[in-house]
Protein backbone atom coordinates (compact mmCIF):
# COMPACT_ATOMS: atom_id res chain seq x y z
CA UNK A 1 0.00 0.00 0.00
CA UNK A 2 2.88 2.35 0.77
CA UNK A 3 4.26 1.87 -2.71
CA UNK A 4 0.97 3.25 -4.01
CA UNK A 5 0.40 6.04 -1.50
CA UNK A 6 3.98 7.36 -1.48
CA UNK A 7 4.00 7.57 -5.28
CA UNK A 8 0.45 8.64 -5.95
CA UNK A 9 1.69 11.42 -8.25
CA UNK A 10 3.36 8.87 -10.48
CA UNK A 11 0.31 6.63 -10.56
CA UNK A 12 -2.14 9.45 -11.29
CA UNK A 13 0.00 10.93 -14.07
CA UNK A 14 0.61 7.49 -15.51
CA UNK A 15 -3.00 6.39 -15.57
CA UNK A 16 -4.21 9.81 -16.67
CA UNK A 17 -2.01 9.51 -19.76
CA UNK A 18 -3.17 5.92 -20.25
CA UNK A 19 -6.78 7.07 -20.21
CA UNK A 20 -6.07 9.93 -22.61
CA UNK A 21 -4.35 7.50 -25.00
CA UNK A 22 -7.22 5.05 -24.63
CA UNK A 23 -10.13 7.46 -25.03
CA UNK A 24 -8.68 9.55 -27.85
CA UNK A 25 -7.31 6.58 -29.81
CA UNK A 26 -10.54 4.68 -29.12
CA UNK A 27 -12.71 7.42 -30.60
CA UNK A 28 -10.47 7.82 -33.67
CA UNK A 29 -10.27 4.05 -34.13
CA UNK A 30 -14.05 3.73 -33.90
CA UNK A 31 -14.65 6.41 -36.51
CA UNK A 32 -11.86 5.31 -38.87
CA UNK A 33 -12.67 1.62 -38.40
CA UNK A 34 -16.35 2.16 -39.21
CA UNK A 35 -15.47 4.10 -42.35
CA UNK A 36 -13.01 1.41 -43.44
CA UNK A 37 -15.60 -1.32 -42.78
CA UNK A 38 -18.17 0.43 -44.97
CA UNK A 39 -15.53 0.83 -47.68
CA UNK A 40 -14.92 -2.91 -47.53
CA UNK A 41 -18.59 -3.58 -48.34
CA UNK A 42 -18.84 -0.73 -50.85
CA UNK A 43 -20.01 -1.55 -54.38
CA UNK A 44 -16.95 0.24 -55.81
CA UNK A 45 -14.02 -2.19 -56.28
CA UNK A 46 -11.29 0.46 -55.82
CA UNK A 47 -12.66 1.40 -52.38
CA UNK A 48 -12.93 -2.24 -51.36
CA UNK A 49 -9.35 -2.80 -52.52
CA UNK A 50 -7.94 0.18 -50.64
CA UNK A 51 -9.70 -0.80 -47.41
CA UNK A 52 -8.57 -4.42 -47.68
CA UNK A 53 -4.97 -3.36 -48.34
CA UNK A 54 -4.94 -1.02 -45.33
CA UNK A 55 -6.40 -3.65 -43.02
CA UNK A 56 -4.04 -6.36 -44.17
CA UNK A 57 -0.91 -4.22 -43.99
CA UNK A 58 -1.54 -2.56 -40.63
CA UNK A 59 -3.21 -5.47 -38.87
CA UNK A 60 -0.38 -7.79 -39.88
CA UNK A 61 2.26 -5.44 -38.46
CA UNK A 62 3.19 -5.74 -34.76
CA UNK A 63 2.00 -2.73 -32.77
CA UNK A 64 5.54 -2.07 -31.58
CA UNK A 65 6.65 -1.59 -35.18
CA UNK A 66 3.73 0.73 -35.91
CA UNK A 67 4.69 2.87 -32.91
CA UNK A 68 8.39 2.64 -33.82
CA UNK A 69 7.52 4.10 -37.18
CA UNK A 70 5.65 7.07 -35.70
CA UNK A 71 8.20 7.70 -32.94
CA UNK A 72 11.39 7.25 -34.97
CA UNK A 73 10.61 6.96 -38.68
CA UNK A 74 7.98 9.65 -39.07
CA UNK A 75 10.09 12.58 -37.74
CA UNK A 76 12.74 11.79 -40.40
CA UNK A 77 10.16 12.36 -43.14
CA UNK A 78 10.36 16.08 -42.35
CA UNK A 79 6.60 16.57 -42.18
CA UNK A 80 4.64 18.34 -39.45
CA UNK A 81 6.39 17.80 -36.13
CA UNK A 82 4.42 15.85 -33.54
CA UNK A 83 5.19 15.04 -29.92
CA UNK A 84 5.45 11.47 -28.65
CA UNK A 85 1.95 11.51 -27.17
CA UNK A 86 0.38 12.51 -30.52
CA UNK A 87 2.54 9.95 -32.30
CA UNK A 88 1.34 7.26 -29.91
CA UNK A 89 -2.30 8.29 -30.44
CA UNK A 90 -1.92 8.16 -34.23
CA UNK A 91 -0.19 4.79 -34.09
CA UNK A 92 -2.72 3.25 -31.70
CA UNK A 93 -5.66 4.66 -33.68
CA UNK A 94 -4.44 3.35 -37.03
CA UNK A 95 -3.64 -0.04 -35.53
CA UNK A 96 -6.88 -0.45 -33.56
CA UNK A 97 -9.02 0.82 -36.45
CA UNK A 98 -8.18 -2.32 -38.43
CA UNK A 99 -9.64 -4.50 -35.67
CA UNK A 100 -12.68 -2.24 -35.31
CA UNK A 101 -13.20 -2.44 -39.08
CA UNK A 102 -13.21 -6.22 -39.08
CA UNK A 103 -15.60 -6.34 -36.11
CA UNK A 104 -17.97 -3.89 -37.81
CA UNK A 105 -17.73 -5.80 -41.10
CA UNK A 106 -18.70 -9.03 -39.40
CA UNK A 107 -21.63 -7.12 -37.89
CA UNK A 108 -22.67 -5.81 -41.30
CA UNK A 109 -22.67 -9.41 -42.54
CA UNK A 110 -25.16 -10.41 -39.83
CA UNK A 111 -27.73 -7.86 -41.03
CA UNK A 112 -30.12 -9.61 -43.45
CA UNK A 113 -29.88 -8.24 -46.99
CA UNK A 114 -33.63 -7.60 -46.89
CA UNK A 115 -33.06 -4.79 -44.36
CA UNK A 116 -30.98 -2.83 -46.86
CA UNK A 117 -33.41 -3.65 -49.67
CA UNK A 118 -36.34 -2.35 -47.61
CA UNK A 119 -34.37 0.82 -46.85
CA UNK A 120 -33.60 1.35 -50.53
CA UNK A 121 -37.20 0.61 -51.44
CA UNK A 122 -38.50 3.51 -49.35
CA UNK A 123 -36.09 5.79 -51.17
CA UNK A 124 -33.13 6.02 -48.80
CA UNK A 125 -29.85 6.64 -50.66
CA UNK A 126 -26.80 4.40 -50.09
CA UNK A 127 -25.29 6.45 -47.24
CA UNK A 128 -28.51 6.68 -45.27
CA UNK A 129 -29.29 3.01 -45.85
CA UNK A 130 -25.94 2.35 -44.23
CA UNK A 131 -26.10 4.86 -41.37
CA UNK A 132 -29.79 4.55 -40.45
CA UNK A 133 -30.51 0.88 -41.03
CA UNK A 134 -27.46 -1.33 -41.55
CA UNK A 135 -24.80 0.10 -39.20
CA UNK A 136 -27.04 0.52 -36.11
CA UNK A 137 -27.94 -3.16 -36.37
CA UNK A 138 -24.36 -4.15 -37.18
CA UNK A 139 -23.02 -2.41 -34.04
CA UNK A 140 -25.63 -4.07 -31.85
CA UNK A 141 -24.56 -7.45 -33.16
CA UNK A 142 -20.85 -6.97 -32.44
CA UNK A 143 -20.75 -5.43 -28.97
CA UNK A 144 -18.79 -8.35 -27.42
CA UNK A 145 -15.99 -8.49 -30.04
CA UNK A 146 -15.94 -4.69 -30.20
CA UNK A 147 -15.32 -4.48 -26.47
CA UNK A 148 -12.58 -7.08 -26.79
CA UNK A 149 -10.95 -4.72 -29.27
CA UNK A 150 -11.20 -1.83 -26.82
CA UNK A 151 -9.95 -3.88 -23.89
CA UNK A 152 -6.97 -4.85 -26.05
CA UNK A 153 -6.47 -1.17 -26.89
CA UNK A 154 -6.50 -0.23 -23.21
CA UNK A 155 -3.72 -2.70 -22.53
CA UNK A 156 -1.88 -1.89 -25.76
CA UNK A 157 -1.45 1.68 -24.55
CA UNK A 158 1.37 0.37 -22.32
CA UNK A 159 3.45 -0.25 -25.43
CA UNK A 160 3.66 3.54 -25.75
CA UNK A 161 5.75 3.53 -22.57
CA UNK A 162 8.61 2.31 -24.67
CA UNK A 163 8.39 5.54 -26.66
CA UNK A 164 8.87 8.09 -23.89
CA UNK A 165 5.19 8.50 -23.06
CA UNK A 166 4.73 8.49 -19.30
CA UNK A 167 1.69 6.24 -19.02
CA UNK A 168 0.81 3.28 -16.81
CA UNK A 169 3.34 0.97 -18.42
CA UNK A 170 6.13 3.38 -17.48
CA UNK A 171 5.21 3.50 -13.79
CA UNK A 172 7.33 0.50 -12.84
CA UNK A 173 10.59 1.82 -14.27
CA UNK A 174 9.99 5.20 -12.63
CA UNK A 175 9.26 3.46 -9.33
CA UNK A 176 12.54 1.57 -9.59
CA UNK A 177 14.38 4.85 -9.90
CA UNK A 178 12.75 5.96 -6.68
CA UNK A 179 13.93 2.73 -5.03
CA UNK A 180 10.52 1.15 -4.62
CA UNK A 181 10.09 -2.63 -4.89
CA UNK A 182 9.35 -3.49 -8.54
CA UNK A 183 6.98 -6.33 -7.80
CA UNK A 184 4.68 -4.21 -5.60
CA UNK A 185 4.59 -1.52 -8.25
CA UNK A 186 3.71 -4.01 -10.98
CA UNK A 187 0.95 -5.53 -8.89
CA UNK A 188 -0.64 -2.12 -8.30
CA UNK A 189 -0.49 -1.31 -12.00
CA UNK A 190 -2.04 -4.68 -12.82
CA UNK A 191 -4.79 -4.15 -10.25
CA UNK A 192 -5.77 -0.78 -11.71
CA UNK A 193 -5.88 -2.33 -15.18
CA UNK A 194 -8.11 -5.11 -13.94
CA UNK A 195 -10.42 -2.48 -12.44
CA UNK A 196 -10.51 -0.46 -15.65
CA UNK A 197 -11.28 -3.53 -17.75
CA UNK A 198 -13.96 -4.41 -15.21
CA UNK A 199 -15.63 -1.07 -15.86
CA UNK A 200 -15.47 -1.68 -19.61
CA UNK A 201 -17.05 -5.12 -19.19
CA UNK A 202 -19.80 -3.54 -17.11
CA UNK A 203 -20.54 -0.99 -19.84
CA UNK A 204 -20.50 -3.84 -22.37
CA UNK A 205 -23.15 -5.80 -20.43
CA UNK A 206 -25.32 -2.69 -20.12
CA UNK A 207 -25.13 -1.99 -23.85
CA UNK A 208 -25.81 -5.62 -24.76
CA UNK A 209 -28.98 -5.53 -22.69
CA UNK A 210 -30.12 -2.16 -23.94
CA UNK A 211 -29.45 -2.79 -27.63
CA UNK A 212 -30.56 -6.35 -27.99
CA UNK A 213 -32.10 -6.76 -31.47
CA UNK A 214 -34.82 -9.36 -31.47
CA UNK A 215 -35.39 -11.08 -34.80
Amino acid sequence: MNTLLNNLDLFTTGFRNTLILFVVSGIFALILGTIVATLRVSPIPAMRGAATLYINVVRNTPLTLVLFFFALGYPKLGLVEIDFMTAAIIGLSLYTATYVAEAVRSGINTVPVGQAEAARAIGLPFTQTLTLVVLPQAFRAVIPPMFSVFIALLKNTTVAAGFSVLEAGAIRSNLSERGEPAMAGLLWVALVFVLLVFILSFVQRKLEKKWKVAR
Partner: peptide
Protein backbone atom coordinates in the same frame (compact mmCIF):
# COMPACT_ATOMS: atom_id res chain seq x y z
CA UNK B 1 -37.95 4.47 -55.49
CA UNK B 2 -39.78 6.66 -53.02
CA UNK B 3 -42.66 6.69 -55.55
CA UNK B 4 -42.72 2.91 -55.79
CA UNK B 5 -43.90 1.07 -52.69
CA UNK B 6 -42.54 -2.40 -52.14
CA UNK B 7 -43.77 -5.19 -49.91
CA UNK B 8 -41.49 -8.19 -49.49
CA UNK B 9 -42.14 -11.84 -48.80
CA UNK B 10 -40.08 -11.68 -45.60
CA UNK B 11 -41.59 -8.36 -44.39
CA UNK B 12 -38.14 -6.81 -43.79
CA UNK B 13 -39.28 -4.44 -41.07
CA UNK B 14 -36.31 -2.57 -39.60
CA UNK B 15 -35.54 -4.82 -36.63
CA UNK B 16 -33.99 -2.09 -34.45
Amino acid sequence: RADVGMVFQSFNLFAH
